[in-house]
Amino acid sequence: MTALLDRTWRDAVAAEWMKVRSLRSTWAFLAGGMAATALGALILFMLVGAYDAATPAERLNYETADPTVVTMPFVMFFVGAIGAMLVTSEFATRSIGPALLAVPQRRLLMGAKATVAGLVGLGCGALFALLAFADARLLLGDRPAPINPWPQWTDAIPTVLCATLVVTVTCLVAMGIGAVVRSTAAALTIVGTLVLVMPTFAHFLPTVWQLRLASVLLPNLTPQLAGSDHPYLLSQGGAAAVTAGYVLLALTAGVLRFSRRDA
């Protein structure tokens, strides 16, 4: 029985992997992530140019040129969209019917989708975080702090790892949101609000509330998890708890909604 379950599980995951690979939107969103990374590199290139032209006194006022701050929220949106589409594309095209006829155990199906969302998030997160890191290393060279956040390349490792983790979490959260709302437009709007709109919105709040809100937003969890210099309020443990909370909340809501509603 356990062997059959294992085989059933493996087959369900393999089928979901095949589905995500065969969706054109997957490749479009990956291209979006690539474009965001390239755009981030261009912005960094311009910033470095301005830095080089500045006086030594002006250079001291430059903020850290951490590319994950500029690039990763957009990457999170595009990779999250892939996660959401794992569920919403099936509702939009009514192919959720055949999917459930093939795997009628809804928790198993959601588990297989979550596994694939996790793998996509992990792979894409690592890819784009490393690319952003490589861009920064190439463009910043041996320039000093504060513009260079990583005087040694090894200093970047915690940030790259944590950025990868946060992209993975975003992909899982987006999948859970997709299972709750079942609509691609609604899911992408919510994911966009979480990773792109809310951080901007937070800036308009009074400082105390700005920090409270900003500290629990997905894009800002990366520096808090990495323990690097940041203005936010959470310790590494607190950031880890909030990160886990996002996954737990979104996936539980998604599984419950998916399991209880008629398809």
Binding site: D11, A15, M18, K19, S22, L23, E90, T93, P98, A99
Partner: peptide, 19 residues
């Protein structure tokens, strides 16, 4: 009930793989 962007073969292959 099939994704219009997939080929007939891929649509069935996804179902087949799951079983």
């Amino acid at each position: 009930a099939a994704h219009p962007g997939r080929s007939a073969f891929t649509h069935l292959a996804c179902l087949a793989r799951s079983n």
